[in-house]
Measured scan of single mutants.
Amino acid sequence: MQRVNMIMAESPGLITICLLGYLLSAECTVFLDHENANKILNRPKRYNSGKLEEFVQGNLERECMEEKCSFEEAREVFENTERTTEFWKQYVDGDQCESNPCLNGGSCKDDINSYECWCPFGFEGKNCELDVTCNIKNGRCEQFCKNSADNKVVCSCTEGYRLAENQKSCEPAVPFPCGRVSVSQTSKLTRAETVFPDVDYVNSTEAETILDNITQSTQSFNDFTRVVGGEDAKPGQFPWQVVLNGKVDAFCGGSIVNEKWIVTAAHCVETGVKITVVAGEHNIEETEHTEQKRNVIRIIPHHNYNAAINKYNHDIALLELDEPLVLNSYVTPICIADKEYTNIFLKFGSGYVSGWGRVFHKGRSALVLQYLRVPLVDRATCLRSTKFTIYNNMFCAGFHEGGRDSCQGDSGGPHVTEVEGTSFLTGIISWGEECAMKGKYGIYTKVSRYVNWIKEKTKLT
């Protein structure tokens, strides 16, 4: 034993070699072989497995989906700052455009905790909710729209109204504003409101030439003092309507412009014939205590009207009353817009006519005020429907199939267009061939041609 100890002390290297040989010859039971080890760690190889990531292109799944990435790591994937920024906006807080917040056709661009709407022409605001041009839906104005110097929408209202708090709607500024039905039992019968379409306001006024200088022999019209197929109006439903009495009662109609003036057809009036105007009328054979009678003290036909040349060209006249009318729910003026808007309103496509005229061709006159909704007829169809001249200051309205029309005794009465609950004068009943005849239409004086003249002559002093 002493000898062994001496050998170990003198030859430590020998001992180490012996131990190493023993270990190498022993069977290893701690580690699995290569094949079995792979069965336990069965993990798919990654895209760049075996390579240094710093030297390969980034992978979106590896960089940002398996674990949260930084902007720089995302930049490695896209290799483009702009594309990385677009991805980053949604990656950080989701897609803010998912709810489609942009209105009126706006395009949404996502941002971090926010979004941006790219608005089409005519709109602005956070969600493109603000109209900035009158060309689109009248700028959301209830009545009139004008573009300011910086191309912003400025709404306005006709006389007797003021802008509401929203700067879009119009509200009454006087007790009985024009064009409004205020009798409670008839307010439910107000005709369907007309909503502004998209309009090209630059070209809204037709490029028409008034044929002022045409000389033409007097034409022989049949029954051209021209509501057939209409309905009984309720008291106060058309408070701007008046009836004219002269040699015979209810020979023509008219509309209240203001307390002192009536507008009617020029062919209705004769110099030297006494005319009485009755406002607030409903049943011409009954006294309903809503009527107001006034005498006409002055007749002003349009300066281009000449019955000797043509009885229905420039067929418009103004009547001055001896005493002002007292405005109330049964006696209310009709609204008159400017030339541009009167023309736009007419193009809405349908209007209402009213009167006490004959209820059928050569038949009896109506006792109760009649009204009828009539569609506008395109000019080409209008011209083809008659052998008589249709001037540019006239328009056609009615039904091709016949059966409904204005008729004798309705002449001078109103053709009105309702705009968001307020009625505007767009025409004056003038003439036609018979009444409600198939293929024939009622012919009306186009008020847009005469609004400046009306307003100039009827100013209240």
Rank of each mutant, 00 (worst) to 15 (best):
Q2N: 15
I7W: 13
A9S: 13
E10L: 11
G13M: 09
L14I: 13
L23H: 05
L23E: 02
L24V: 11
E27N: 07
C28M: 05
T29L: 14
V30I: 13
D33R: 10
E35M: 12
E35K: 11
K39M: 12
R43S: 02
R43M: 01
K45C: 00
R46N: 02
N48P: 03
S49P: 03
K51S: 08
K51C: 04
E53H: 00
F55D: 10
N59T: 04
E61K: 05
M65P: 01
E66F: 04
E67C: 00
E67L: 00
C69I: 00
F71C: 02
F71P: 05
R75P: 01
E76T: 01
F78D: 03
N80I: 04
R83H: 12
R83E: 04
T84F: 05
E86W: 06
Q90V: 12
Q90P: 06
Q90C: 07
D93V: 11
D95F: 09
S99M: 11
N100S: 14
N100L: 10
C102V: 02
C108Y: 03
C108P: 03
D111L: 14
S114W: 07
Y115V: 04
C117N: 02
C119M: 02
C119K: 03
P120T: 09
G122D: 09
K126I: 14
K126E: 14
L130N: 12
L130D: 14
T133M: 11
C134Q: 03
N135M: 12
E142A: 08
Q143D: 00
K146V: 08
N147F: 13
A149P: 11
A149D: 14
A149E: 13
V154H: 08
C155F: 00
S156G: 09
T158G: 05
Y161S: 01
Y161L: 03
R162G: 06
R162A: 10
R162W: 07
K168S: 05
S169L: 06
E171C: 05
F176I: 10
V181E: 07
V181W: 08
V181M: 12
S184E: 14
T190V: 15
A192H: 10
A192C: 05
A192L: 12
A192Q: 09
T194L: 07
V195A: 14
P197W: 07
D198R: 11
V199Q: 13
A207K: 12
E208A: 13
L211K: 10
L211Q: 15
Q216D: 11
Q219V: 12
S220K: 12
F221C: 08
F221H: 12
D223F: 10
T225R: 08
V228D: 10
G229C: 10
E231A: 13
P235W: 07
Q237G: 09
F238Q: 04
Q241K: 05
V242T: 04
V243M: 06
V243P: 01
V243E: 03
L244A: 02
N245D: 06
V248C: 05
A250L: 09
G254L: 00
G254A: 05
E259N: 07
E259Y: 04
K260L: 09
W261E: 00
I262Q: 00
T264F: 02
H267W: 03
H267F: 02
C268S: 01
V269E: 02
E270W: 07
G272V: 09
K274M: 09
T276L: 05
V278N: 05
V278F: 05
H282G: 09
H282D: 04
I284R: 13
E286M: 11
T287D: 14
H289R: 07
T290V: 06
K293T: 11
K293V: 14
I297M: 08
R298T: 10
H303D: 11
Y305D: 01
N306M: 06
A307K: 10
A308P: 06
Y312Q: 06
D315G: 03
I316Q: 00
L318H: 01
L319P: 00
E320C: 03
V326T: 11
V326E: 10
E340S: 07
T342P: 01
F348N: 15
V353Q: 04
V353M: 05
W356D: 02
G357I: 08
H361I: 10
K362D: 12
V368I: 13
V374I: 08
P375T: 14
D378N: 10
C382K: 03
S385P: 04
I390K: 06
Y391H: 14
N393W: 05
N393M: 03
F395K: 01
G398T: 04
F399V: 13
H400P: 15
S406W: 14
S411G: 12
P414G: 11
T417C: 04
T417S: 08
E418M: 12
V419T: 05
G421N: 10
G421E: 05
T422H: 03
S423D: 03
F424A: 02
L425A: 00
T426Y: 00
G427I: 00
I429Y: 15
E433N: 15
C435V: 03
C435H: 04
A436H: 12
A436C: 06
K440M: 05
K440A: 08
Y444M: 05
T445S: 05
W453T: 00
W453M: 01
I454S: 01
T458Y: 01
L460S: 08
